[in-house]
Simulated scan of single mutants.
Amino acid sequence: MVDKTINVTLTKDKKEKPAAEKLEFGKVFTDHMFIMDYIEGKGWHDSRIVPYQSITLDPASIVFHYGQTVFEGLKAYVTEDGEARLFRPDKNMQRLNRSNERMCIPHIDEDLALNAINELVSIEKEWIPTAPGTSLYIRPFIISTEAYLGVAPSKSYQFLVILSPVGAYYKEGINPVKIAVEDNFVRTVKGGTGEAKTAGNYASSLKAQELVADKGYAQVLWLDGVDKKYIEEVGSMNVFFKINGEVVTPALNGSILEGVTRNSVIRLLNHWDIPVAERKISMEEVHQAYKNGLLEEAFGAGTAAVISPIGELSWQGEQLIINDRKTGNVSKRLYDTLTGIQYGTVEDSFGWIDVVK
């Protein structure tokens, strides 16, 4: 039986909160954090909310050497009447446990994790920024802490949750971004860890991202790791293409992260009777649609940016200009609806919102 008691120790030295116009993504952190420990034979225990602080780990901790770690990302929003709310947090905890399974990390109690996030956000409610487009980013993560240099799953872990007030993920906001198709480096392959939200996937993406950033591109579009032909993800987002009236997104294949926003987009498109397909889609198909004048929109979907329209794709030396670098109607409708549900200006007819008590 998991002890679901969460002990709370409040800080006596609160931080100064940043001005909304100065918010960057993931630079500033709130006054408190959540921690829970795991030891083999005892299980998860000692759930606590404490003042935000450094953690101490042995230099031989497995997380440093073999990357046995997983994380999640979700947000808290505040409505005009001051209600704090979360968007589909149960889906994030379900995905966290799927990542745990892939990375040989013990499952967490999802209800306990949701209660911990709810209580932590409630304590830090005044940290949720109120300016348009801002929110409180929530980062749950698990690290392996056993001091051991053998290649084996750890016997001890920590589950932590930290919070950060954030502005827009991309400086462009809802305005279209430039994306470069990556056909040299590989993010992951089927059978690897691509469908898990684990640190190594992101570390392996940094070099490609660094190279395209120097050329003014916001992210890279990843192709599959075998044929380098089929589209998978855009950086930290799932990707969608509207071709001749139909919205197409790559099917989940074992190397693509199952995004919560991705799922929400598909649900909304189906609700609106806009044709949507989950299937293999190659860069050649997208290019041919562009040449034929049928590539109407492209956009990324993820927690950090919500919906990020793509105005330009660079592929094999050619620049594909999409919708005259303007935000498309479907992208705008999705963005307005999702953010409206999150901030309470659009009715939540799907039951996606959890109100923070």
Rank of each mutant, 00 (worst) to 15 (best):
D3F: 05
I6W: 05
I6Y: 03
K12P: 01
D13I: 07
D13E: 10
K14F: 05
E16D: 10
E16I: 14
K17F: 12
A19Q: 12
E24Q: 13
F25H: 04
G26L: 12
F29R: 09
M33L: 11
G41C: 06
K42I: 01
G43K: 02
G43F: 02
H45A: 13
S47N: 10
I49S: 07
Q53E: 13
I55L: 14
T56I: 13
D58N: 15
H65K: 08
Y66Q: 12
T69A: 15
V70W: 07
E72M: 11
G73L: 08
T79M: 00
A84W: 09
R88N: 02
N92A: 00
N97A: 05
R98I: 02
R98L: 07
R98Q: 14
N100D: 03
N100C: 15
E101N: 10
C104P: 01
H107D: 11
I108H: 06
D109S: 02
D109W: 02
A113L: 03
L114I: 07
N115A: 13
L120G: 04
V121L: 02
S122I: 01
W127F: 06
A131L: 08
P132S: 13
P132F: 13
Y137H: 11
I138C: 04
R139H: 14
T145R: 09
Y148C: 14
L149T: 14
L149W: 05
G150Q: 13
P153S: 10
Q158K: 15
F159P: 04
I162F: 07
P165C: 11
G167Q: 12
Y169G: 13
I174F: 11
I174E: 10
I174P: 04
P176G: 07
I179G: 06
I179V: 15
I179P: 04
I179M: 13
D183F: 11
V186R: 14
A196N: 04
A196S: 14
K197C: 06
A199R: 04
S205M: 15
K207G: 06
A208M: 06
V220C: 15
W222R: 09
D224G: 11
D224S: 15
K229W: 01
E233Q: 13
N238G: 08
N238M: 10
V239C: 07
F241M: 08
K242S: 10
V247E: 06
V248D: 04
L252N: 05
L252H: 09
N253C: 11
L257S: 14
L257Q: 10
L257K: 07
T261S: 04
T261Q: 00
R262N: 05
L269W: 10
W272K: 12
I274V: 15
V276Y: 07
A277R: 08
R279W: 01
K280I: 07
I281S: 05
S282W: 03
E285M: 08
H287Q: 14
A289F: 09
N292P: 05
F299G: 08
A301V: 12
G302Y: 06
T303W: 04
A305H: 08
V306G: 01
S308A: 15
P309R: 02
I310H: 03
I310P: 03
E312C: 14
E312P: 05
Q319S: 15
I322E: 05
N323E: 08
D324I: 04
N329Q: 09
S331W: 01
K332Y: 01
Y335R: 00
D336W: 00
T337I: 13
L338Q: 00
G340Q: 00
Q342Y: 00
Y343D: 00
G344I: 02
D348V: 00
D348E: 01
S349R: 11
I353N: 00
I353D: 01
V355G: 00
V355S: 00
